[in-house]
């Protein structure tokens, strides 16, 4: 039976409602980012959805340290934390994905290290703090506190199990015969991996990169414990965005939050076509 127009209308209303509920916090953040000080501050009277006098003042403030209407100037702008976040999250992601991919391939294709897949998860079995406090002490001994390599390294270590497990499931799906065909047709073992298997799991690598990057990008705890000043990341910096005089700088936080949302979105869009899996399937007879 075809739904009546009223039913269709109801359906759309419900869908829009559900979408709106999900999107409200994000819309609120966007709106907040463009509001001037007197509209977002706690003492502001009345709540309104859209900025009455839209301004880029919040962005100006976090990038230059001052803006019209705010007396207190910032002595530490967001430029460096943004750079720190980009560097450490990217480096951690690249390393975790490379190492995870190689390890997953070995375990998936050769009967080695049968216990490894489960044991890489053990780090995840502890409460994060129980792991991070000893790590902080170790890092301090090694002189890696507040360094880009120290933070990148812990990002690699912590996200490695994810990239390993994700890549293993993708490799497990590549039929053995396809690799054997390449071997017979003249490829060496390494060429098979490089020319045949890796291109077949492209989609898997893309989704793994995105997943791991988002984990690293949104980390707060590790950056909080392992950085002091030079390599503070966006989430840590954001938490500190407050002044004694004006309290929490909500408008600035919203502006920074908006900026922080950009890299994952760009990454997601740029690898979107790989995220659609299905390339690998249908090549074999059932």
């Amino acid at each position: 039976m075809r739904p009546s127009p009223a039913q269709i209308a109801l359906r759309y209303v419900l869908i829009i409602l559900a979408t709106a509920i999900v999107l409200i916090p994000i819309l609120w953040m966007i709106s907040l980012a463009f509001k001037p000080y007197n509209e977002w501050q706690t003492a502001a009277t009345g709540v309104h959805w859209w900025p009455k006098n839209p301004t880029l003042g919040n962005f100006e403030y976090i990038f230059t340290g001052q803006t019209e209407g705010l007396v207190v100037s910032l002595d530490f702008t967001a430029v460096r934390p943004i750079f720190a976040s980009l560097l450490t999250a990217s480096l951690g992601t690249i390393l975790a994905v490379i190492v995870g991919t190689l390890g997953a391939y070995a375990v998936s294709r050769f009967k080695v290290a049968n216990n490894l897949p489960l044991s890489v998860l053990q780090l995840r079995l502890f409460p994060p703090l129980a792991v991070m406090i000893p790590v902080m002490i170790m890092w301090a001994y090694l002189g890696m506190i507040d360094t880009w390599w120290g933070l990148s390294l812990i990002y690699t270590i912590v996200t490695l199990p994810f990239s390993f497990w994700l890549m293993k499931t993708f490799f497990d799906e590549v039929p053995l015969e396809i690799e054997e065909a390449a071997l017979v047709e003249g490829c060496s073992r390494f060429r098979v991996f490089w020319k045949v298997t890796l291109p077949m799991v492209k989609a898997g690598i893309a989704s793994t990169i995105l997943f791991v990057f988002i984990l690293n990008w949104s980390d707060y705890l590790m950056a909080l414990l392992l950085t002091r000043k030079d390599w503070v990341t966006i989430p840590v910096y954001m938490n500190a965005l407050a002044t004694a005089m004006s309290g929490q700088l909500y408008g600035m936080k919203a502006a920074l939050g908006l900026i922080a949302a950009i890299p994952p979105v760009i990454l997601g869009l740029s690898i979107q076509r790989y995220l659609v899996r299905g390339l690998t399937f249908g090549a074999l007879k059932q």
Binding site: P175, E177, I178, E180, A181, A182, L183, V184, E185, G186, C187, S188, V196, P199, M200, K202, L279, T280, F281, G282, A283, L284, K285
Partner: peptide
């Protein structure tokens, strides 16, 4: 395998899904 110089058609065909039919044939 690559030292033996034999040609093989696999039971489940084992075509390379990321290559076109022509590239598959050209692969060896």
């Amino acid at each position: 395998p690559h030292q033996r110089d034999l040609g093989m058609v696999f039971q489940n065909l084992a075509l390379f899904p990321h290559l076109s039919a022509g590239e598959n044939i050209a692969f060896p």
